[in-house]
Design a protein around this nucleic acid. Structure first.
Lengths: 227, 227
DNA sequence: AGATGTGAAAGTTTTCACAGCC
DNA sequence: GGCTGTGAAAACTTTCACATCT
């Protein structure tokens, strides 16, 4: 039994059944729509509208939300502000997370400057690399450090999440270091399946897979078979 | 009926049932493992080994492959070279796709330099932006052009796939332009649900959603509730 | 023995449809 | 009339287990 395939973890945490990962992903979409609606000063929203904006069905919206509680009012809908806050709480967006970026290449740089993270409580507290031509550079106030500086830094600040933008060949090694230093979440851009302890959460962002799945559907939907 | 929710498309293309999108994603993983095995000069591989390396079960590997044909030999396993080629064909990696990048910011630049694309037949043929400070720059032989130059360019080269690395606010507009010019696949990095005609395939890469899902599981797996 | 390919079973997710409340 | 919350049904996906071939 190599990788422990934690299937039915089935933890009866507090009162609520465990939400599926698709539900959590959709929750993020609802959250985004709710932010827009709140900015547009809307008071209430129906599952139908929420579904329309997010590209799913209204029944799905209701089922997803019902996993976490009864947030709506029959005949009326959901209060935009209340629901947005509830979801923020569920997703852990009401607190700060300390994030370290591993890999100061062009992808690393793009992720560092990505506004979406800062806005939602993900605080980029350090950037690491091993390339001496990059170390010491100042990125908008954050200095790129050598990977060896990870240990001393962790003694001062807890790092919750690692973003891995390093080459495939070293991704597992860097992940191991991060995990050894107490990191519990990894956003992995390297095209490798990482092996981590059970208590660590990995989410893969695999650009090749995304492109290949587009390529597949272009063929399925059919056209002339070019060279 | 706003967004046409193409549910049971159920096209009985040739002889084979339609593969689910999870199957296609796993096919990409198998492909990657097979490339490694081929480089390591392995002749044959079992569903068990393939599964181990890709983080799934052997039954799943066999089921996935059986959707497309009988590629293995009982008692023996699969021929590495043959299977890799078969999957390349299924995923459309035996041909070239012309790709245009929209958005020449830091994310665009990172995607432009991403080796994974070039290696697998995705040919970056053009880069567009509307920011005059970027237009005219030479990116390793490719000149960044103004979005207005899309139409003339398409008359010379067919563009199959668009990569959208533009701000949310303009993503839908740019997608519309791309679709109007015959693009049939979109890799979308903007955090918006794009509305496109049925024949166009969109794959979203949403970094905020990925981070939020990590944040959610960190809370679920439990720790002290910090500010 | 060692492996695939595959129906059938089990499990999971989505959709339906309606009671119940505004 | 409008809309949520939810059991039940339908659809889909994964796993099991075994006949079948080397």
């Amino acid at each position: 039994m190599p990788t422990s395939r934690t299937k039915a973890d089935r933890r009866t945490t507090f009162h609520l059944e465990r939400a599926s990962s698709s539900t959590v992903i959709r929750l993020s979409s609802y959250y985004r729509v709710l932010c827009e609606l709140e900015a547009a000063r809307l008071q209430t929203v129906s599952s139908r509208l929420l579904a329309e904006r997010g590209g799913m069905t209204s029944a799905q919206v209701r089922k997803d939300l019902s996993v976490f509680g009864n947030f709506g009012r029959r005949g009326l809908g959901y209060n935009v502000v209340v629901l947005r806050r509830k979801i923020a709480e569920i997703l852990g967006l009401t607190r700060w997370w300390n994030v370290a970026l591993f890999g100061a290449g062009s992808l690393g740089h793009a992720l560092f400057s990505y506004r979406g993270f800062k806005d939602q409580g993900f605080h980029m507290v350090a950037v690491f690399d091993i390339d001496h031509s990059k170390i010491g550079k100042n990125w908008n106030g954050t200095v790129v450090r050598h990977l060896d500086d990870l240990a001393p830094l962790v003694r001062k600040k807890t790092i919750d999440i690692a973003i891995l933008a390093v080459p495939e060949t070293v991704a597992q090694d860097v992940a191991n270091m991060a995990v050894a230093r107490g990191i519990r979440g990894i956003l992995n851009f390297a095209a490798v399946k990482l092996t981590v302890p059970e208590h660590v959460t990995v989410r893969d962002v695999d650009l090749s897979i995304a492109m290949e799945s587009i390529s597949y559907s272009l063929i399925q939907l059919g056209d002339s078979t070019k060279p």
